[in-house]
Design a protein around this nucleic acid. Structure first.
Lengths: 150, 150
DNA sequence: CTTCATGCAAATACTTTGCAATCTT
DNA sequence: AAGATTGCAAAGTATTTGCATGAAG
């Protein structure tokens, strides 16, 4: 299932759950937020705030960039959205509907590939535990180039 | 050997190597660059540009912040300095005299601990190779909190 | 002396914020 | 009606850049 497919399922099924999550937090389900959730759910790439703003405007032309930023912050606080900051570039965003994963970034094209390694996850936990810490969250980004002989 | 000790050795021994590295690249060994290299070599923490600027000023009061930024960029291009961008905070810098390592960030204090896991390094290489990529560089950051029972 | 580097100030890029008007509930 | 949310414009950070002066090779 691609992320787009997940997005469609999400629009039908989990969309109400998101609405509920907002309501439970005392937040309102407004047109800008609905549009942003739709856009995020449909996004197969990892758009930044400006890109999201443009896509939201296609659905709801009056939404401002500040509102996109504010909504993203609110959605992040609710755990519905994750903020990714690759190598000093503008922040990119993804929904948290998919299970945890890390990112491979193609340094030539900017493409982002999601992956997951349970072995690495376990090693990380072991490393910090030995030092008396507990893991709050982590970032693993692999900046890559297509192999010439591949 | 702490990073400070490494720094002292570096000032005496490898400092000339750095000077040579700059000269070989057609770059000049100026007072601001000398001061910045001294400050970086002595730094045990991972300072950002503003902090570096203040420390450089203690040695060379007229150096401007733009020069610090420009020097850092130049030193980075020569591979003498590495830029770290943690979680959307201002970039931090470290010399490349120490072997490769990743970072643990204490989310409460901001402290940074260096660590290295050969197992994780190898797993990373395997993952990208299976996808037809070669690893250019990577970032692994473990955001942690001291264990209460530790 | 030729060219690169610097300081200053202005510009840029991304993101946040104050405030009055406007929607949700 | 009460309070959260929005749009707009302005402010805030972090970083880069144009340009004339100054220093390094």
């Amino acid at each position: 299932m691609t992320k787009q497919d997940r997005g469609k399922v999400l629009k039908n099924a989990a969309r109400k759950a998101m609405e509920a999550a907002l309501r439970d937090a005392g937040l309102r389900f407004t047109a800008p937020r609905a549009a942003l959730l739709d856009v995020l759910a449909a996004a197969d790439d990892h758009p930044d705030a400006g890109e999201l703003h443009q896509r939201v405007r296609a659905l709801s032309p009056s939404v401002s960039l500040s509102t996109v930023y504010r909504c993203l912050t609110a959605l992040e606080a609710q755990g519905l959205v994750q903020r990714l900051t690759f190598d000093g570039a503008p922040a990119r965003f993804e929904t948290t509907d998919a299970p945890h994963h890390d990112h491979i970034i193609d340094v030539d094209t900017g493409d982002v590939i999601e992956f997951r390694s349970d072995k690495i996850e376990k090693l990380q936990a072991m490393i910090v535990e030995e030092l008396g810490y507990e893991l709050v969250h982590h970032r693993l980004e692999l900046y890559c180039r297509k192999r010439s002989g591949a």
